[in-house]
Structures are given as C-alpha cells and as structure tokens.
C-alpha cells in the first residue's frame, strides 16, 4: 500500500469511512455482489434471528478480516484458503458457543444457521479480495462494513416477511386484531423461502432504479 511511508492516516479518514459505508449501498454484498443469498433466505422469516445473525456475521467478517490481514505476509499462498477457513471456522464456533452461553433462546432460534456462517461466501470473498492485500485496520473496517451491508438487507427483508407473514415485528403484534376480524389473513407465502428471494429481487430493482450506474450494460 502507498500509505506506508506517508503520515499516519487518521483512523476514520474518508477513505476508511468509504470502506465502512460502501457495502451499505453501492457495493452491497447481497444486492450488488449477489453473495450470501442462501443464508439471507434462511434467517429472514422473523426479525429477531435476522438481527442476531447480522451481529454474528459482522463479528465474523470483521475479525476474520483483521486476523487474516495480520497474518497476510506469512500465509503460504498454496494453503491460504485452508488458513482462511480455519480462522473463519474458529471464529464462528466461538460466536456459537458464546451465544449458547449467554443468549440461549436466540441461539435456539438460529440453530444451524450460525454454524453455516462458515459457508457464507461474503466472508471468504472479503478475505481473498481485501484482507490478503491490505493493512489490518482498513481490513477490519471493510469486514464490519460488509457485515453491516449484509445485515441491512437481512433486516429489510425480514421486516417485510415478518410484517406480512406473521403480522408481528420482533415478535410483537403490529397488525391490529380488528384487521383479522375484517378478514385480513397473514400471507403464508411470505414465510416460505422463495418470497425472500423475491423480496431481495425487489430491493435490487428499487436500488438500481435510484442508482442507475449499477445497471449492467
């Protein structure tokens, strides 16, 4: 990196902030890079698991980027994917264990999906594309940013799925009981995985309507 000999960069310089906020919109891992779709389908039926999943993924992307970036000069390139996997898997198991120890009911809801963070393509993608070639602090921010970008979509999707599918938000009833008396019904379709895909599709559509530069030629 060219900054090595320059003056010390402030921790939240514009360039670093861009790493953090870029994935929220123009470089979103789900809607632009189309990564991590599989887990986005699985955990977005309700908002609470989606939120915990977001935090878990953020921690894993952030810290795996940090660790890999610290190790980047010593990692033999022939086994770099294995090294990355070991780091990611270790972090994921730690997160899972901590969830089981301190927020047991949420960990029960997320069940296997925490373990499946290991297979989330965003994490390996960021390790390969960013952490292997950048300094620890920008890598950490990049990881957190991508976790946030992933979470933003997860929470948006789960908002619509829980609202229309169950009539609740974070488990609290928001659709008034009187609606049901007039024949309103929760849409069972929203709970099924295909609707997550369609919701993500709609989000991509809306995003590209406002950000024309994202539209492929």
């Amino acid at each position: 990196m060219s900054t090595e000999n320059q003056e010390r960069e402030p921790l939240f310089s514009p360039k670093n902030m861009k790493l953090l906020t870029g994935p929220l919109n123009l470089n979103n891992p789900i809607t632009v890079q189309v990564l991590g779709i599989c887990s986005a389908l699985a955990v977005t039926a309700k908002m609470k698991p989606a939120l915990v999943m977001t935090i878990a993924v953020m921690i894993v992307t952030g810290f795996s980027n940090l660790v890999i970036s610290l190790l980047r000069k010593g990692i033999p390139s022939r086994i770099r994917i294995i090294v990355q996997l070991v780091v990611v898997a270790t972090l994921v198991i730690l997160v899972d264990q901590v969830l089981k120890a301190f927020v047991y009911d949420v960990s029960k809801q997320l069940s296997v999906f925490v373990g499946l963070i290991i297979t989330n393509c965003i994490i390996m993608g960021r390790l390969e594309a960013f952490a292997m070639g950048n300094k620890p602090w920008p890598s950490f921010l990049d990881g957190i940013g991508n976790g946030l970008g992933y979470g933003l979509i997860l929470i948006t999707v789960s908002f619509f799925r829980e609202l229309f599918g169950s009539g609740t938000l974070f488990g609290y009833q928001v659709v008034p009981q009187s609606f049901y008396h007039f024949g309103y019904e929760n849409n069972g379709m929203m709970i099924l995985p295909p609707m997550a895909l369609i919701t993500v599709g709609v989000i991509i559509w809306v995003q590209r309507y406002y950000k024309r530069e994202l539209i492929e030629k």
């Binding site: 010593g74 086994i79 270790t90 730690l94």
Partner: peptide, 22 residues
C-alpha cells in the same frame, strides 16, 4: 517444510483456543 509447520501451529492454536472457550 514451512507450509507444514505453519499449518500445524495454526491448527494447534485454533484447537487450544476452542477447547479453552468450550
């Protein structure tokens, strides 16, 4: 040799960390 040493040390460290946490 370096690759094997690297892999071995990394795996042992990860295992130690996880056992400790468990």
């Amino acid at each position: 040799g370096y690759i094997f040493r690297y892999a071995a040390i990394m795996v042992i460290l990860a295992a130690a960390l996880l056992s400790l946490a468990a």
